[in-house]
Amino acid sequence: MAALRAQCVLLTGSNRGIGLELVRQLLGGPHPPTHIFATCRDPEGPRGKDLRDLASKHPNLMLVKLDVADPSAIVNAAKIVEGKLNGAGLNLLINNAGIFTPVSLETVDSEDMIRAYKTNAVGPLLMAQAFLPLLKKAAQDGKEKRLSCNKAAIINISSFLGSIKGTPESYFKPVISYRCSKADLTVDTSVRGLLSVLPILSEKHSGMLLNWEGKAIPW
């Protein structure tokens, strides 16, 4: 199985769940990145403890304060990362941060919608804009001819619930059934699957929605 060889990686939403496990497995992989930038809203607070523990053991892990719903915070984080890279580029941007509020059509309000869009849709877009110069730098300096996660790429972590074609399979079912069905797939297994898929991605996968096994999910 191919291994990810990206030298510089940045992840959003790194203090728990899939984000935290991605950090753990990247650090413990056969080819750990020379720089891992793990971002979250409050790395110095109680929810950042696991990240701080990892950073104390791994000098290649750097914690960066970042709220993807705050455009100014994104710009500031990009400046911090650029300074830490000292002229190098960013190979891989993983937009993992997201929020899920268990509201129905009857209970959702405008604030719920705006908050979700700021974090889940606008946030990844602004992240891509802010870090594009560093991604282009990595692409220019990389030895590989084709784009890949080892050279320069943006990966947006999504969900089956983002599939429009899959709406009939999920919309009319209670959210609890979806959450319970996810319990069969542990975070560890999910991340191992993700890290086995990332090394095989290329330009032909651009814009595709893939599951943890690399199988295409219809939009």
Results as ranks from 00 to 15, higher is better:
Val81Asn: 00
Val81Ala: 02
Glu82Cys: 06
Glu82Gly: 09
Glu82Trp: 04
Glu82Thr: 12
Glu82Asn: 08
Gly83Pro: 04
Lys84His: 13
Lys84Gln: 12
Leu85Ile: 11
Asn86Glu: 13
Asn86Val: 08
Gly87Trp: 02
Gly87Leu: 03
Gly87Asn: 03
Ala88Val: 07
Gly89His: 00
Gly89Glu: 04
Gly89Phe: 05
Leu90Tyr: 02
Asn91Gln: 14
Asn91Val: 07
Leu92Cys: 10
Leu93Trp: 00
Ile94Gln: 03
Ile94Trp: 10
Asn96Arg: 06
Ala97His: 00
Gly98Asn: 04
Gly98Phe: 01
Ile99Ser: 03
Ile99Tyr: 04
Phe100Thr: 11
Phe100Met: 14
Phe100Tyr: 15
Phe100Glu: 05
Pro102Ala: 05
Pro102Lys: 12
Val103Asn: 04
Val103Pro: 00
Val103Phe: 12
Ser104Thr: 15
Glu106Phe: 08
Glu106Ala: 13
Glu106Lys: 11
Thr107Asn: 08
Val108Ala: 15
Val108Arg: 07
Asp109Trp: 09
Asp109Ile: 12
Ser110Asn: 10
Ser110Ile: 08
Glu111His: 10
Glu111Ala: 14
Glu111Arg: 13
Asp112Ser: 07
Met113Tyr: 07
Arg115His: 11
Ala116Met: 11
Ala116Gln: 09
Tyr117Glu: 11
Tyr117Leu: 14
Lys118Leu: 13
Lys118Ser: 09
Lys118His: 12
Thr119Gly: 00
Thr119Glu: 00
Asn120Leu: 05
Ala121Ser: 13
Ala121Val: 15
Ala121Glu: 11
Ala121Thr: 14
Val122Asn: 06
Val122Tyr: 12
Val122Ser: 05
Gly123Glu: 03
Gly123Val: 07
Gly123Lys: 00
Gly123Arg: 00
Gly123Phe: 02
Pro124Thr: 08
Leu125Ser: 13
Leu126Asn: 03
Met127Val: 07
Ala128Met: 15
Ala128Tyr: 03
Ala128Asp: 08
Gln129Gly: 07
Ala130Leu: 11
Phe131Gly: 03
Phe131Thr: 03
Phe131Glu: 10
Phe131Ala: 06
Leu132Cys: 09
Pro133Ser: 13
Pro133Ala: 11
Pro133Ile: 14
Leu134Ile: 04
Leu134Gln: 01
Leu135Glu: 01
Leu135Ile: 12
Lys136Asp: 11
Lys136Glu: 15
Lys136Val: 10
Ala138Arg: 01
Ala139Lys: 06
Ala139Asn: 08
Ala139Pro: 06
Ala139Asp: 13
Gln140Ala: 15
Gly142Ser: 15
Gly142Met: 03
Gly142His: 15
Gly142Leu: 04
Gly142Glu: 11
Lys143Pro: 06
Glu144Gly: 15
Glu144Arg: 10
Lys145Asn: 10
Arg146Met: 12
Leu147Cys: 06
Leu147Glu: 08
Leu147Ile: 05
Ser148Phe: 02
Cys149Gly: 12
Asn150Met: 04
Asn150Ile: 01
Lys151Gly: 01
Lys151Asp: 01
Ala152Met: 10
Ala153Phe: 13
Ala153Ser: 12
Ala153Gln: 07
Ala153Asn: 07
Ala153Lys: 01
Ala153Leu: 09
Ile154Asp: 03
Ile154Val: 14
Ile155Glu: 01
Ile155Met: 02
Asn156Trp: 04
Ile157Val: 15
Ile157Pro: 02
Ser158Phe: 01
Phe160Asn: 04
Leu161Gln: 09
Gly162Arg: 00
Gly162Ser: 07
Gly162Pro: 00
Ile164His: 08
